[in-house]
Design a protein around this nucleic acid. Structure first.
Lengths: 340, 340
DNA sequence: GCGCTTTAATAACGCGCGTTACTTCCGTGT
DNA sequence: ACACGGAAGTAACGCGCGTTATTAAAGCGC
């Protein structure tokens, strides 16, 4: 009963109950500037709303005002640690602004992606956030051009769309710098696939830090891996089995899973973390970093901040404002735990 | 330019372009049964839609048809491994049915939860999915009564709302049974906080499996933990340091993080997994289970299936159909890897 | 030729709301 | 006395679409 009523309750019901016209109710609800509403009338109306339990119909409001209030968010995978953070960041900013997120996962399938985009356009999203799991170049369906779009953790090959990226270089620099500050001079770097932006940027940061510290470059300390614990285990074994004195006393790992593999290699050799070998990871995958023993010092990818910033940029674009920066890079904070 | 046109494109434009009335276009778009539309006319209209790049306005359609097409999904935290799976499951089922998910995270804050619910009701959601991170009892805001609601991974104290829960008992049974089948008879159980439903159910399953196998119960093999790797490490040490012959040859851990701690205790003692001590986890947190060395055999909580089933139940409720079961329990599949 | 059914298509209403333009009432100044 | 300006409030239109009459044309039997 209450259900039916509240479902069908309209502004006219409120107006009737308060003894005013529907227009007046609308003015009150929207704080219409320039509308002179005496306090007494306003009070009556708000009271009526309260008594009746009226809720404005967001859809009807959107139609009349020609502002859907929706932003679209397309990610590759919702499962997994990163998409959730982007969503969290985007949500918190969007909802505060009475805007809402229509979320879709493409699952890496172009057909699903296109379908999702279609639905979003039918819902008249005022902007689109497109986020990837790992930092790379992407190509968007043409339909994305119909609406302001911001790329998160990726960039388009043509370089036309605004994008938000993690600052890989500064990340690599900070990781290395942290180890240098702890007194290490032989720092192994178990990198990701050397062809991807994350690997390139982090290596650049790694080398800059060494250069600044006046340490001569030893390329044999940098080994590529493939983002798995196993590959990092192998790589770590290789580095740790060098003759003592030439063996690195610290390992900077391309991600936390790889740090897991490195941990195994270190422990197997009876070495202690961080006493004998210090380790820094990357990505801050909480489930790993916070539960490894000892807990892993690592760099966090700023997914939540990227989500927030993405909404900010979309809001600006949707309002027709120009963007101050087309390509934004966000800092990767260093999370100190116990592995250095 | 193209942007402006496509934003403002309406059904009337299509009608004009095809030389028919707007009504006819609507009939074609909705495959209106009982409307006699000659093939030639239909073709002309579809062609016009295509040429113009027309997209129906989902909001306006919802208003006119009085069917929002929205379902609400409230979770505690979007970050973290579980919410994503629920979302994935719910999304895949919902989108296929041309229904959409309005997602919100309460962050455990009742105020945010209430605000989210308000927004959802303003968007006229036709149903609500309420999911928690861990299996427990919850109390929903009264406003949730205004719309069909299904609980996921939780239940309401009053027992009025339909809910979907993991089958903890069968999970505990399967884990234990797997170890029994591998020949183990002294199976340690590092449980979660013994007061929560997951711990109670799994212990029941554990004991039933032992009973069925004719193994006399040894309560000292069951130790409580607190869901952390550290607490499990301590507990595992205790179990493993029992005199040989009395030491368990297998450990069933309350979750995968705890299995991580157990791994450390086992490896520290120079024991091998699974040769000397077998381990079974719970939760299947991919980041841990798939990257521990050796990979962890564990039970998966059926989050994705719970999300899917949740949408099914909501769809039925929203259509006014009665539910066959008020309380659904879903199986926790055993994922065989290399730790048994 | 006339009624009658089927086919094809449309005019018109309403969904719930934002907004504009308009009306009514009242106090003020001259 | 009158014009005038502001305060308070409302009628009416339109947003884009689903849907229900209703109309116009075409086919059919006699």
């Amino acid at each position: 009963m209450a259900t039916n009523k509240s479902q069908r309750l309209t502004m006219s019901d409120v107006a009737r109950h308060a003894g005013v016209s529907r227009t007046t109710v609308s003015f009150v609800l929207n704080d219409k500037p320039g509308a002179a509403i005496p306090d007494e009338t306003r009070r009556r109306i708000l009271e009526a709303i309260d008594e009746l339990g009226y809720r404005p119909n967001a859809g009807a409001r959107a139609l009349a005002a020609n502002r859907s209030g929706w932003f679209g968010l397309i990610t590759e995978i919702v499962t997994g640690p990163f998409a959730g953070e982007v969503i969290t960041g985007a949500q918190s900013r969007a909802w505060g602004d009475r805007r809402f997120l229509l979320i879709a996962a493409s699952e890496g399938d172009p057909a699903q992606e296109a379908a999702a985009l279609d639905q979003m356009l039918e819902h008249r999203v005022e902007g689109l956030l497109y986020a990837t799991t790992w930092h790379r170049a992407v190509t968007l369906p043409k339909a994305a051009r119909e609406v302001p779009t911001v790329l998160v953790n990726c960039y388009d090959a043509e370089g036309e769309l605004p994008c938000i990226l993690p600052d890989e270089v500064s990340g690599g620099y900070k990781a290395t710098r942290r180890l240098l500050d702890a007194g290490h001079t032989r720092i192994g770097f178990i990198n990701l696939d050397p062809a991807i932006p994350a690997a390139i940027g982090r290596r650049e940061g790694y080398e800059r830090a060494l250069r600044e510290a006046g340490i001569t470059r030893d390329p044999s300390l940098v080994v590529p891996g493939w983002a798995t614990a196993d590959s990092a285990y192998t790589a770590a074994c290789e580095l740790l089995d060098r003759p003592a004195g030439d063996r690195p006393t610290a390992l900077f790992c391309g991600n936390d899973r790889m740090a897991m593999g490195a941990y195994d290699a270190i422990k197997e050799r009876g070495l202690r973390i961080p006493h004998d070998v210090a380790v820094v990871g990357f990505d801050n995958q909480e489930l790993i970093a916070a539960y490894l023993r000892p807990k892993l010092t690592t760099l966090a990818l700023p997914f939540e901040a990227m989500g927030t910033k993405g909404i900010d940029m979309l809001a600006a674009l949707a309002a027709g404002q120009p963007l101050d920066t087309h390509r934004v890079t966000l800092d990767c904070p260093l999370l100190e735990r116990s592995s250095v």
